[in-house]
């Protein structure tokens, strides 16, 4: 049997075909989960977001208008859901502990090699501190390695705007990485 396209799977999901959901999940779950965990940096929240995203895809399959790729549409839902989760967390931490409102979680990417673990930890902590749109542009471009044009489509913006966001994100990351490890690569003054 010929493999169905993502659009055909979505059309089948609209008729209540659970097998189509399983197939689409097999194709996109890693991308959704990886995008979510890169944003929120807490595994349990990333799982909740992944669950939310596929539930939304299932319930809105009939409403997909087909003006973009299915994966672009799913990425858009993922990013919006992840940013909403981050806003909720910021509100919670604001009321819970005023001083820790913007502190990144102690996150270690589950697939980081041991010898690179510290470098990834520092980078993800720096990514967490970026403003939302810069964070999304950076994650989609460098963690998910999407082409810039697709990043622009996911974020509903122009290619120029994505490039500008990435430039500012890199500037922010340079500063954050410098302050994260001030003594790396040089002898500490006594």
């Amino acid at each position: 049997m010929a493999e169905l396209s993502d659009r055909e799977l979505l059309a089948n999901m609209a008729t209540g075909d659970a097998a189509a959901l399983r197939e689409l999940y097999a194709r996109l779950a890693d991308r959704v989960y990886n995008t979510a965990i890169s944003h929120v940096q807490v595994a349990a929240e990333a799982e909740e977001i992944t669950q939310d995203v596929f539930t939304k895809v299932w319930r809105n399959a009939a409403g997909f208008n087909g003006d973009s790729q299915v994966s672009t549409w799913v990425y858009r839902i993922t990013v919006n859901t992840a940013l909403t989760a981050l806003k909720k967390r910021q509100r919670r931490t604001f009321f819970g502990a005023l001083t820790q409102a913007n502190d990144p979680p102690d996150f270690q990417h589950p697939n980081a090699l041991l010898e690179e673990a510290e470098q990834h930890r520092a980078l993800f902590a720096a990514i967490y501190q970026l403003p939302d749109r810069q964070k999304t542009a950076f994650i989609l471009s460098f963690v998910e390695e999407l082409p810039r044009q697709e990043v622009a489509e996911v974020m509903s913006t122009s290619l120029k705007s994505v490039e500008s966001l990435l430039m500012r994100a890199k500037q922010g990351l340079r500063v954050a990485l410098r302050t994260e490890h001030p003594y790396r690569g040089k002898t500490k003054q006594q």
Partner: peptide, 25 residues
């Protein structure tokens, strides 16, 4: 430092959700 971090990022495989997540969904 940033370029180095980005190079490492390229070699970082995607995180995968736990196997039971589909059943929960």
């Amino acid at each position: 430092k940033l370029e180095d971090a980005l190079e490492h990022l390229k070699r970082l495989p995607r995180a995968t959700p736990p196997p039971e997540l589909l059943a929960r969904i």
